[in-house]
Each structure stands twice: as structure tokens, then as C-alpha cells.
Design a protein around this nucleic acid. Structure first.
Length: 887
RNA sequence: GGACGUGUAGCUCAGCGGGAGAGCACCUCGUUGACAUCGAGGGGGUCACAGGUUCAAUCCCUGUCACGUCCA
């Protein structure tokens, strides 16, 4: 017999090993099977599973298991990302903590060797954690962005784009991260509101005839000023254009120029221009051919282009010193407190410097065009659709993508420099040498570019590089484009957009048919989980405490679109209980001899209760299938919850008890067979969300009755049931019983009828059809409603409590327990309810426009409702008058 | 400043043109041979606000307010 509870601790590991060992995770080799593929958003190789991963991967697993059971060749392709900056940062920190020398002292080769060591040590952590979650990835196809195959793909893409002129080297302002001392891309910059100040500085005119006041939040950059700009139409400054100020401290004359960038409304209307350290000023500088003076070193200290006493100062120290100097010179006019946006590195957290350097760029503007078109034409569809707007917004305003990073951990840029700086781009050093020989006419020593590529460059190739591109593999042939991508909105720019551009450019086809954007998981208070806030929930801990299925069900049920998920332990506990509920329903079935019958056909079921549960099961199978097809994961989970708990356990199991203990052997046997059938369907429908518990139940009920002939549940056939199995008569009949029992319970509870009392249920007034239902189901009703019997009377006896169900008047003779006041209150409440309903519907039906314009069935429905309510109200009023008469 | 999203029961969220729903929390009752990780019953909402479209609006449109996120 089944134990009282499912024990995830012992079962999960065993079941996962069984699945993996059986090869169930690999896509079907059947060439007739329709392919279905998902590539995993590769987690950082050295990372560990956080709750966002748990959500994202649960949803991918739900879809993969669903499609696998539907008979598709389902591939969920796993892998990890080398995550350039993030990993290098972690390893550097580790080395420092262990008292090692820094990476610069260590040297490139030795440092990279250390990172690989680290990867070997901790690289398996996250994939093992995915296994604990139940992820049915095909591990035989696992990839890593820095493995040889993917690196070859990266080199090929770089060389190809370079040849096509879509990758180029350029000197321009970049976002410079002084902590990591590397360039980063625009989207790696986070604008943060911070408290700061506008410092109003007076710059004396060179001829000593006056001064011009400029304001800045970054005083130290004045050391690199090369102009003061005013608006060309600003009357105040017309006469000054073309003249010069003498830059204090630096003592350098700089011109006063006219440029529309200066906003007459802001401050004094004049603005200092530092072309080498501000994106706007850079544009002004280019327009006006201003010199660009870089005043910083790579780690944001003042360099040799500034006066000696500033050199070597940190940028923030320099700021103070500059302000102090202005004050001393009597040129500090005002310090105005303000809050303003300051760029920060998303990884380092330090203030980003606009910095003039040589970097490699991708011409994203060109690549974006077909990627925009693909979504416009619906070749790739976002789900929910509104994320397409976010995608378009960014893609239509895309800037050149800076792809070089001054890091060591990553794909080294396949570019070599000759002695004269001439660049040779090739997939191999030999290739570059050949190009150089051709160019110089002889061999020259070449030096490879020191930089590596942005991590997202290689992840951008993920949907095809993982399948073996540039080789023409059978996987590419079969599984590209992938079916669905499931990811978070935070990487639409970083990742989804890049995959769209690269996929279309190199494969000629979009990388995925559908992109499902999942919600962001937050803590119970709605705060973003972060280590610094200390509110992170460790999914592994939750798996330990409640089992993987409970966590998976919770995340699935809460994955409603366009919303944050506020996760609480209470919720997970509730869904753990749900699993226990199903487990015990199966245990009940087993105890009562429910077993699969040889040749059982739900179409041939005779008993009304059985016909009803067959129909309900069919409806559920349809709605769950539809929900999963449409990525309505929460809808699927909630539908399963309702059906299993409220329909199957609360009603079918309860109503089946008299049949299973009854004398009608044929009906008993049919009920046993039907229950077993329904449970098998339930296990299948629930399996994608709760794979462990369902697989375990499947295994433990394998010997009950006829063999299934379907092997493990993970590869069992998804239920395909015909609508013809739904029987409206059975629905009506069971509907009446359910309503009668519910209402009867309500009456008993509200009137405080003692639990031990067993009155009769009196059928006072009902149609012939209804009488038949009460008659044939008397035993069921008696047990479920806990009444002595069901009997038929002409008139309710004195003091019996009447209630109306589906137009029929029933009564409970519980006079001895009656609290008159309570009963009066109950009746009055019911009558009021009906009265307001009647008023509402009458108003509607009294409106000629409604009758004329509304759909016929809506009008009819309202007429019926009115008749029903009026009849019920009349009966209850009659009962109330009898009650008053007693008094 | 721009874009997007969200405002429904105490909390978390479904629903989305024709009778306001679930889970949790709360209150009352219950040791019924599957399950106390349970069962039965109950209270609780001018569906943010104001206009409009419609026979009919929580749902569609416009505006306002509040909150959130992203981009400047």
C-alpha cells in the first residue's frame, strides 16, 4: 500500500537518475516526430541557482515535458555561459581572499589557467542544481560558450562581420569602468539618482573685461575644458562669441563658441565643454573641431595633461581640490544642491567615465533592420505581446555595439597587428600571417589584440552555435529555428535582440518562433531579491523543505504575465499540501480496490457519477492542453488545482464512497475502473508541473490492474480525449446532487444542527426528473449530506427547514434544533438576495433596447434567471410566513 | 522628459463586454476508515477616480491620480 505521504527526499534523486539513465531527456529519434526545441538561457558557469533561474527553468521544463508527452521530438538544450566580467571578478576576489598576487602580477596565461581551474571546480554546481529542480535537459548536448566548438563559431562570426564591414575599429567615447578598467556597452550602464551639486564657476574673460559663469556637476573635468559654449541666438552672449576665457587653475585660454547644445534656459546659459569626458560635449567638440584633452588614467586618476599638483589624484579628490581652488580664487559663485542621474557600472557599481579609446564595434543599426522586420511580420512573436514594444523601442534607436573588453577571460579578438599598426582579421593566427605576408610581401611579426569579446557576443550565437554551426549538423537541420525561448525581460536587450540579429544574419531565419517573457521573482514584500538586502530565497533550500514539485507548482501557478511574483513560504507549503492531497486520493483509490480494467473504455461507462467524472476529466484535459499551448502556465496550474482538489477529491471521491461500499457489484467495479482511469489521466496532466510525485505514483500504481503499456510517465502519451465523452445529462444530475448537498450542509451549519443529528432529507416539490435523481441517488446523498434517508412528502411538516435548489423545494425536519431567530435571519437573507437579483434582471428585461439588441441567448438566460429567482423567492417567503405563524 | 506596465476581498493574484472569483489569512463547527499537510460552513469588495462608447462596462476609449520598471 502507498505510504501516507510522498517523500521527496528519497524519491527525487532516484527518479531523476532513472529518467536520465533511460535516455528520456534526449529527443525522440523518430523522424516522423515533430521537432520541438528550447535553448536554455545559459546561466553563468560559476554561478548558483537563484529563484529567478528556478522560475525560468521550471517553465522551460513544463513546456518540454508537455511537448515530449505529446509525442514531439522535444529537445531542451542546456549549457552555461563563461560570463566574462562576472567570472573574472569572482576569481579575482577569490585569489585576493586566498592571499594570492593580483592578476596583473600573475600574468594573463597564469590567470586564465586559474579561471579554468575555478570553472572545473564550481562549473558543475548550477547544472546539478538544475537536476535537483527536475529539469529534463538533454545533458548529452550540454555546451559552454568557451568550449572549442562555440569559440570557432565566434571567430567565424567575427571575421565574417568584419569582412562585411559590420565590425570595425573606432576611436570614440566609451563607457569606461575604472574598476575593471575596461570598456562596457551602453546597456551595462545603470543610471542612478544620487545627491550632488551644481557648482557655478566664474571663468574670467581673457582680456580681463569680465567673466562668464558656467555650472557643472563634475568640477574636476574643467581641467580638460576646451571651450565654453553659448546658444547662437542668446542675446546676452552675442558679443562674446569668438572671444576667449582664461581657464582658471590650468591657465589656458579657451574659446567661447556658439552651439545649439547650450540651453539659454539653464543656469547662466553658458556651458563648459569637455569633449573627452562627456558624451554631449564630445558631439559639440566634433562639430566645432575642438581639441580633446584626456585628463584621466585608466583607473580614473588625473594624468599628466593636468597641472602637476593634480596629477595622480583620484577623480573625487581632484573634484574637492578644484572646488577649493575656485573658492580661493574667488571664482566660486554658488553651490546648488541637486539630485541627478549618474552612470554606474552594473557589475562594478562604480561611477562610469566617458573615456576616449580605440574599441571594436558592431554596426548594430544594419543588423537590427531585419530583426525588427521579423517581429513586425510575426515570424517571432513575443508573449505577452506588449514586450514587442520594448524590443522595437530599443532596436529602432540602436547604437553601435562596443564589443571589445579589456579583460582576459573570454574569446580573444581574432585580430592581429603588424608593426605599423595594420590590422589583420582572421580565424587563426596562420590566417592572419598569410594576410600579412600578402600585404607586406614578406613575414612581419604580428601581435594579437589583447582584448576579449563582450560575453553577449557569444551568447548572441547560442541558438545555432550550440547546435554545431558552422558545420551543417542534423541538429541544426532539425531543431533550428527553436520553438520557444523563455527568459526574463531584463535581458531582452542584452540577449534576445542580439540573438535575433545574429540568428537572422547567419542562419537566414529567426532563432525562435516565440519568446515568452517570464515575470520577475520578488520577496513577499515585493522587493527585488538581492544579497545585500538579505532577502534572497534559496531555491535549493526550498526544495529541501517542501520538495521540488511544490516549488515548481508554486512558481508555475504564480507566473501570471506582466507581473512580479511575490514568493512566500506559505504559498509553497500550500502547494506541497496539494501534492499530499492527490497522493492520498490515490491511496484511497488503492485501498478501495480501484484498478485499471482490461479494455476499459470511458465511452462505455454507465453510472452517472462515472459518466460525470469522465466528462469533467475530458474538459480539464482540453483546458490544460490549451493553456500549455498558449504558455498560460498559471492557468494550467490553477486548472489542475481546482480539478484535482475541488472536483475529483471533494466530489467524485466523496460521492463514490457509497458505490465502492455498495451492493451493486457491477457499479462498484465500474467505479473502481473509472477512478483508476481518471487518476492515470490526472497523473499525466499534472506531470509537467509536478514530475516527481506523479512519476512516483505512476510507478507505485503500475501493478494495479491491467498494465498500461506506456513505460515511464515522463514518456507516456498525453491524454487525447474526445468531446463526445462529455454527457450533459450526467452534468445536470450530479449538478443537482452537488447543489442539494451543499445547500443542505449550509442550512445545517447555519442553524447549528448538531453534527450527530441524522434528520431525513425531504423532497417537497420537484420535477419528475429531479425526483428520479433524488430517488436513485438517495444512498449517496444520505452519506454525503449525513442524513438518515431521502423521502418524498406532499408538504413540509411543521418546523421543517425548507431550502430551494435548482427550482426544487427540499426541507430538513430539524425542528427540535431550530433557533427561530437564526432561521428567520437565514430566510430573510436568502429572500433579500433573490429580491435584488430579481430587481436587477427585471430592470434589464424591462428595457426594450436590451431585448432588441442583446444576443438571443443572453435574453433567454435572463428570463430563466428571473423565473427561477421569483419561484425561489416565493417559496422562501411562504416558508417564512409559516415560521411567523408558529410564533 | 519619453516608453511600457499595474491599480479587483486584510494579503497575493485570476477574470475581462451580459449573474464579482481563487489561494492564504480571519470566524464557527468537526477525531465521518484516503488525507488534520484534513473536512464542513461563514464573514469580507461603489473591481483607483472622472468622463465617453454601448441596450449593457470591472472589462473597450479618453483624461486624472497613485505605484512600478525601462530608456533619456
Amino acid at each position: 500500500m502507498l505510504e501516507k505521504n510522498f517523500d521527496p527526499k528519497t524519491a527525487e534523486q532516484r527518479l531523476y537518475a532513472m529518467w536520465e539513465g533511460s535516455g528520456a531527456f534526449a529527443p525522440s529519434a523518430d523522424p516522423a516526430a515533430e521537432p520541438f526545441s528550447i535553448v536554455i538561457p545559459p546561466p553563468n558557469v560559476t554561478g548558483s541557482l537563484h529563484i529567478g533561474h528556478a522560475l525560468n527553468n521550471t517553465l522551460q521544463d513544463v513546456l518540454t515535458r508537455f511537448e515530449r508527452m505529446r509525442g514531439k521530438a522535444a529537445l531542451w538544450l542546456p549549457g552555461t555561459d563563461h560570463a566574462g566580467i562576472a567570472t573574472q571578478m569572482v576569481v579575482e576576489r577569490q585569489l585576493a581572499a586566498a592571499g594570492n598576487i593580483g592578476r596583473r602580477d600573475m600574468g594573463r596565461d597564469e590567470f586564465i589557467a586559474k579561471v579554468w581551474e575555478w570553472k572545473a571546480e564550481s562549473g558543475g554546481t548550477i547544472t546539478n542544481q538544475l537536476r535537483r529542480l527536475g529539469a529534463s535537459c538533454d545533458w548529452s548536448r550540454e555546451r559552454f560558450t568557451l568550449d572549442e566548438g562555440l569559440s570557432a563559431a565566434v571567430r567565424k562570426v567575427f571575421v565574417t562581420l568584419h569582412k562585411q564591414g559590420l565590425i570595425y575599429r573606432d576611436k570614440r567615447l566609451v563607457n569606461w569602468d575604472p574598476h575593471f578598467q575596461t570598456a562596457i556597452s551602453d546597456i551595462e550602464v545603470e543610471q542612478k539618482e544620487v545627491d550632488g551639486a551644481f557648482y557655478h564657476f566664474a571663468y574670467p574673460l581673457e582680456d580681463g573685461s569680465g567673466e562668464i559663469v558656467v555650472a557643472t556637476t563634475r568640477p574636476e573635468t574643467m581641467l580638460g575644458d576646451t571651450a565654453v559654449a553659448v546658444h547662437p541666438s542668446d542675446e546676452r552672449y552675442k558679443g562674446l562669441i569668438g572671444r576667449a576665457v582664461r581657464l582658471p587653475i590650468v591657465n589656458r585660454p579657451v574659446p567661447i563658441i556658439a552651439d545649439e547644445y547650450a540651453d539659454p534656459e539653464k543656469g547662466s546659459g553658458a556651458v563648459k565643454i569637455t569633449p573627452a569626458h562627456d558624451f554631449n560635449d564630445y558631439q559639440v567638440g566634433k562639430r566645432n573641431n575642438l581639441p580633446m584633452i584626456n585628463i584621466f588614467t585608466d583607473d580614473a586618476k588625473i594624468n599628466e595633461n593636468a597641472p602637476a599638483e593634480y596629477q595622480g589624484l583620484d577623480r573625487f579628490a581632484a573634484r574637492k581640490k578644484v572646488v577649493a581652488a575656485f573658492e580661493e580664487l574667488g571664482l566660486l559663485r554658488e553651490i546648488e544642491k541637486t539630485r541627478h542621474a549618474v552612470p554606474h557600472g552594473d557589475r562594478s557599481g562604480v561611477v562610469i567615465e566617458p573615456y576616449l579609446t580605440d574599441q571594436w564595434y558592431v554596426d548594430a543599426k544594419v543588423l537590427a533592420q531585419p530583426a525588427i522586420k521579423a517581429v513586425e511580420e510575426g515570424r517571432t512573436v513575443f508573449e505577452p505581446r506588449h514586450w514587442e514594444k520594448t524590443y522595437f523601442e530599443w532596436m529602432r534607436n540602436i547604437e553601435p555595439w562596443c564589443i571589445s573588453r579589456q579583460l582576459w577571460w573570454g574569446h580573444r579578438i581574432p585580430a592581429w597587428y603588424g608593426p605599423d599598426g595594420k590590422i589583420f582579421v582572421a580565424e587563426t593566427e596562420e590566417g592572419a600571417k598569410a594576410l600579412a605576408r600578402e600585404h607586406y610581401g614578406h613575414d612581419e611579426p604580428l601581435r594579437q589584440d589583447d582584448d576579449v569579446l563582450d560575453t553577449w557576443f557569444s551568447s548572441g550565437l547560442w541558438p545555432f552555435s550550440t547546435m554545431g554551426w558552422p558545420e551543417k549538423t542534423s541538429d541544426l537541420e532539425r531543431f533550428y529555428p527553436t520553438s520557444t525561448l523563455i527568459t526574463g525581460f531584463d535581458i531582452i536587450f542584452f540577449w534576445v535582440a542580439r540573438m535575433m540579429m545574429m540568428g537572422i544574419h547567419f542562419m537566414g531565419e529567426v532563432p525562435f518562433d516565440r519568446v515568452f517573457i517570464n515575470a520577475l521573482v520578488r520577496d513577499a514584500e515585493g522587493k527585488k531579491m538581492s544579497k545585500s538586502k538579505g532577502n534572497v530565497m534559496d531555491p535549493l533550500e526550498l526544495v529541501d523543505d517542501y520538495g521540488a514539485d511544490a516549488l515548481r507548482f508554486t512558481l508555475t501557478a504564480m507566473s501570471g504575465q506582466a507581473r512580479d511574483i511575490k514568493l512566500s513560504r506559505q504559498r509553497i507549503e500550500g502547494y506541497r499540501n496539494f501534492g499530499t492531497k492527490l497522493w492520498n486520493a490515490a491511496r484511497f483509490a488503492q485501498v478501495n480496490g480501484c484498478a485499471r480494467a482490461e479494455g476499459f473504455d470511458p465511452a462505455n461507462v454507465k453510472g452517472v457519477l462515472n459518466r460525470w467524472i469522465v466528462g469533467e476529466t475530458v474538459r480539464t484535459a482540453h483546458s490544460i492542453t490549451k493553456a500549455l499551448e498558449g504558455c498560460s502556465f498559471d492557468g494550467a496550474a490553477n486548472g489542475l488545482y481546482r480539478f484535482i482538489w475541488n472536483t475529483f477529491c471533494d466530489w467524485y471521491v466523496e460521492l463514490s464512497k457509497p458505490l465502492l461500499n455498495g451492493a451493486d457489484e457491477a457499479l462498484k467495479a465500474e467505479t473502481q475502473a473509472t477512478a483508476a482511469w481518471a487518476l492515470d489521466v490526472i497523473l499525466k496532466l499534472l506531470h509537467p508541473v509536478m514530475p516527481f510525485l506523479t512519476e512516483e505514483l505512476w510507478a507505485q500504481t503500475a501493478d494495479l490492474g491491467a498494465p498500461r503499456g506506456e513505460g515511464m510517465l515522463i514518456t507516456a502519451r498525453w491524454p487525447q480525449l474526445s468531446d463526445t465523452l462529455i454527457d450533459p445529462d450526467a452534468d445536470a444530475e450530479i449538478g443537482l446532487i452537488v447543489a442539494a448537498v451543499s445547500e443542505g450542509r449550509s442550512v445545517k451549519a447555519e442553524l447549528n444542527v448538531p453534527h450527530s443529528a441524522r434528520p431525513a432529507l425531504l423532497v417537497v416539490d420537484a420535477t419528475d426528473a429531479q425526483r428520479t435523481v433524488f430517488q436513485t441517488n438517495a444512498a449517496v446523498i444520505a452519506q454525503t449530506l449525513r442524513v438518515a434517508e431521502v423521502s418524498f412528502v406532499e408538504q413540509a411538516p411543521q418546523g421543517a427547514i425548507p431550502f430551494v435548489v435548482n427550482g426544487a423545494t427540499l426541507a430538513l425536519p430539524v425542528a427540535e434544533f431550530i433557533d427561530l431567530a437564526a432561521e428567520r435571519a437565514r430566510l430573510a437573507k436568502e429572500i433579500t438576495g433573490h429580491a435584488s437579483d430579481i430587481a436587477h434582471v427585471m430592470k434589464k428585461l424591462g428595457n426594450p433596447a436590451f431585448v432588441a439588441n442583446a444576443k438571443e441567448e443572453v435574453v433567454e438566460e435572463n428570463r430563466e434567471r428571473l423565473a427561477e429567482s421569483e419561484a425561489a423567492k416565493a417559496k422562501l417567503e411562504h416558508a417564512l410566513s409559516l415560521l411567523e405563524a408558529v410564533v
